[in-house]
Design a protein around this nucleic acid. Structure first.
Length: 824
DNA sequence: GTGGTGTTCTAA
DNA sequence: TAGAACACCACA
């Protein structure tokens, strides 16, 4: 007997509660360790890559364990801090561990299982085989191993499993579960001289190529590019570069290789750009920044988290850079969180110019191979080529940091930090605070318009607070003009969606060669189509929303489930042919602009135009280089972008944000308008912001005009207190889902009632959300508001218990229930 | 019976 | 989550 652990608890990438216990075969006993990946069988044929969560020797008594098949790692790929972090996420946000694992690890590290079948060459049939069995053997005879999926395809049968099973029993074939990795290193092909020719020899070779002019040329280009006889170590020449420089085809290069004059070699290529950028040192901070950074340092002595409230263009990034520099010097890692990929473009350049290849970027537009590379880089944390600074979106909190010193959460008020679908529904800002805690690191939240919750935490001393109200480089705060579109409509002075004020300012800006940003929070062409005679509006067949018309592909699209259909020629109701588009999406605004300002160069930035990997960068680059005069966009344009030549910002419809039925609608409208306004302004001239609204007297609009964050904050705070909302209460949304509307309502009523018996008036609802049907399932919500000081863990425990009670009732057992902790 | 389809259960 | 098991129905 040895005292190696006999069993391992494994986290599987499935939405299942808990871990699964497997037995450890002898040969793996010394190899296994917590945090390593293992391959385990589940069910009759599936295999998964799981993570070892713990090792022990307690045999489970109610089931037979299966063996772990293999261990994939020499070193753990998940460290202890991460496992603790996963636990916290799973507890706090009520997600199963498997979901956390799926979210945390790039899928290239979670290998895929594929069953492969091989022919048994020695097999002799005793009895006649069936037709399809023969067919399968034929196919296997031709190729070495074939997956079941491709067998199905080749035979034209829907499912070859029964045949394979019978062939297996007869001993005709073998099944081999093969784990294949999706991740392949990218290799670059290089060219060099076949052997160390002396200068004389190379002269002879060139002479010998007299009759092959192209080959001679190519060799000359190679010698030029590599500087072979000029430098001690010749430069690396990739085949691509060589072919381009010499303007030759690959065939010519190949013939030189065949003549043993040149040869190919390969090198692993880091997908991530590690090229040295010229380092530009730190910029000198101005006195206000200097004061702020001093205060931040002071606050960090006592506090783990500091909120930096600095107006737009106050130079927060420069402060971050100075703080990052300090951490790097101490050999610590830094995580710099941004709300979305969009923002990385501008900031990455600034960070790279200071920290060069110590900066890594992590976001969802990277393909999986790139993500694996970053993950491994952070994991290995090799002193010479490690990314010490990671710039990333919310999922970067899951990277395998070992020595975090500082987390910066930029634009901390952004709601894109909250993940909604799929689970885990975590908030990256709040998760970052916990993560920092685990590492003993500090957290800096930065924004021009703090979330009410964060500012409250700062006011009550939970966070340190540092404020910075001076814009750098003498940029003045913009002038904000409110245009009353109700009045303009009445007087029939609107030009489509543009008020006379906006038209006038746009004309002026274009004449002055100043750029314009127009903001409309609605993508597509028209929010909906409407029948002129009866008012019928086409709706999504799966969800309870109207379909948005997209002109460029002439489709009606559902923005919830992605359902698309051709717009109907006739009204479904009255059969009349008068379908008309209503409202304005970014696409239509772009079109209207061109009719009013035919010379203007207009660009559009929304989900539809930035789907491709570099589309966003290209748009921003074009706008920066003033190749565009007007940029129309959704909220994407509001987020922390800095342009130097924007004279005018137009908010086309402020009311759509204000009227949104959510307790955060006012706060968010203020943040949005204040952020968009921040884009206006140039070095020497005061920028203008024009807000179009039906309600010019609205308090939030007034707050925006006065740029008065505090008034917005205090009025919101008292409202939150009165109507029991965060930051005074913690919210948990319980969402019930089912295809049958009657049933889901009944279940929700039942659950709400039983919750009321425990939580009393803290239970709200059940309530149907505005969009109460998504992908054919009806949704009902129950909202639980619990006091900040009471234990959230206990409340969640009771919630789970009650949800389980509900599921025990026969008719309710197919109801789907999920929790959203701190919903947005 | 049998084949097709939809629903529920279970995995270690 | 995916597959296996089951339940149900229509049809011969």
């Amino acid at each position: 007997m040895n005292n190696h652990p006999k069993f391992a608890d494994i986290i599987l990438p499935l939405p299942l509660a808990g871990v699964f216990t497997y037995s450890i075969p002898g040969e793996l006993q010394t190899e296994l360790a917590i945090g390593k990946r293992v391959v385990v069988p589940l069910g009759s044929k599936k295999m998964y890559t799981g993570i070892v969560q713990s090792l022990h020797s307690n045999a489970p008594d109610d089931y037979q364990t299966k063996d772990i098949l293999s261990c994939l790692d020499h070193f753990p790929i998940i460290n202890h801090i991460q496992l603790k972090f996963w636990d916290w996420i799973s507890q706090y946000y009520q997600a199963v561990l498997g979901d956390v694992y799926k979210a945390a690890v790039p899928s290239g590290l979670k290998l895929e299982s594929q069953t492969k079948i091989t022919l048994n060459e020695a097999f002799m049939a005793e009895k006649a085989l069936s037709k399809s069995e023969d067919q399968i053997l034929d196919i296997l005879g031709n190729s070495k191993d074939v997956s079941i999926a491709s067998l199905n395809q080749a035979t034209g049968l829907k499912n070859t499993l029964p045949q394979i099973k019978s062939l297996l029993e007869k001993g005709a074939v073998f099944v081999e579960e093969q784990i294949s990795s999706n991740y392949k290193e990218k290799k670059q092909e290089y060219v060099c001289l076949h052997s160390d020719f002396s200068e004389e020899q190379i002269g002879d070779i060139l002479d010998g190529l007299k009759r092959a002019k192209k080959q001679q040329e190519l060799l000359y280009s190679y010698l030029n590019l590599s500087k072979h006889y000029f430098e001690d170590i010749p430069e690396k020449v990739s085949s691509n570069d060589l072919l381009q420089a010499s303007n030759c085809s690959r065939a010519i290069l190949k013939s030189l290789v065949e003549k043993n004059i040149l040869k190919f070699y390969f090198e692993k290529l880091d997908r991530l750009d590690l090229s040295e950028t010229p380092l530009r040192g730190l910029k000198q901070l101005n006195q206000h920044q200097e004061k702020a950074i001093h205060e931040i340092r002071e606050n960090f002595e006592e506090q783990n988290c500091v909120l930096l409230h600095g107006v737009t263009s106050s130079g927060k990034t420069e402060i971050y850079i100075h703080l990052i520099e300090e951490q790097i010097k101490q050999g610590n890692q830094v995580l710099y969180l941004l709300p979305e990929i969009a923002l990385t473009t501008q900031i990455i350049n600034r960070l790279k110019s200071v920290f060069g290849n110590k900066v890594g970027v992590y976001h969802s537009k990277f393909n999986d191979a790139e993500r694996v590379e970053i993950y491994n880089n952070v994991l290995e944390n090799k002193s010479d080529k490690a990314y010490q600074v990671i710039l990333g979106v919310r999922s970067s909190v899951f990277l395998p940091f070992s020595k975090l010193g500082l987390i910066i959460v930029d634009e901390e008020h952004e709601n894109t930090y909250k993940q909604f679908d799929p689970s885990p529904r975590y908030h990256a800002r709040d998760a970052a605070l916990y993560l920092a805690n685990l590492h003993g690191a500090k957290t800096l939240l930065g924004t021009a318009t703090p979330a009410v919750e964060s500012y409250y935490n700062a006011q009550t001393g939970k966070y340190g607070l540092v404020e910075l109200f001076k814009r750098h480089q003498e940029i003045e705060m913009p002038e904000i003009i409110v245009a009353d579109i109700k009045e303009a409509r009445r007087k029939k002075m609107m030009k489509s969606i543009f008020s006379p004020e906006l038209m006038a300012h746009m004309t002026e800006s274009l004449e002055n060669k100043e750029q314009i940003i127009l903001f409309q929070n609605r993508r597509g062409y028209a929010p909906y189509l409407e029948c002129k005679s009866c008012g019928w509006v086409p709706h999504c067949p799966n969800c309870s929303v109207s379909l948005t018309y997209h002109r460029h592909n002439n489709l009606l699209v559902c923005h919830y489930c992605g359902h698309g259909m051709a717009p109907p020629n006739n009204c479904d109701h009255c059969r009349s042919t008068g379908m008309e588009d209503r409202g304005f999406g970014t696409e239509k605004i772009e079109e209207e602009l061109l009719s009013y300002f035919p010379e203007a160069r207009v660009g559009r930035m929304d989900l539809d135009t930035t789907r491709k990997k570099n589309a966003y960068e290209k748009l921003i680059y074009k706008f920066e280089k003033q190749e565009l005069d007007i940029l129309v966009g959704t909220q994407m344009v509001s987020k922390g972008l800095d342009f130097d030549h924007v004279g005018l910002v137009g908010i086309l419809n402020a009311d759509s944000m204000l009227n949104y039925p959510d307790f955060r609608a006012y706060e968010r409208s203020f943040q949005m308008m204040a952020q968009v306004s921040g884009r206006a302004g140039r070095k020497k001239k005061r920028g203008k912001v024009l807000i179009q609204t039906y309600t010019p007297d609205h308090e939030i609009i007034k707050n925006v005009v006065k740029n008065d964050y505090f008034e917005m904050y205090s009025s919101q705070l008292s409202e939150r207190k009165e109507y029991i909302y965060p930051p005074f209460y913690r919210l948990i949304n319980i969402s019930l889902k089912h295809k049958n509307q009657r049933l889901v309502n009944e279940a929700a009523n039942y659950l709400a009632q039983s919750l009321r018996k425990i939580f009393g008036i803290r239970v709200f609802g059940p309530q149907s959300p505005v969009i109460n049907r998504i992908q054919n399932s009806f949704i009902v919500n129950i909202l639980l508001k619990i006091e900040k000081k009471s234990s959230p863990a206990k409340a969640k425990w009771i919630l789970n218990q009650q949800a389980n009670f509900l599921k025990e009732i026969e008719k309710f057992k197919s109801i789907q229930i999920h929790f959203d902790v701190d919903p947005m």
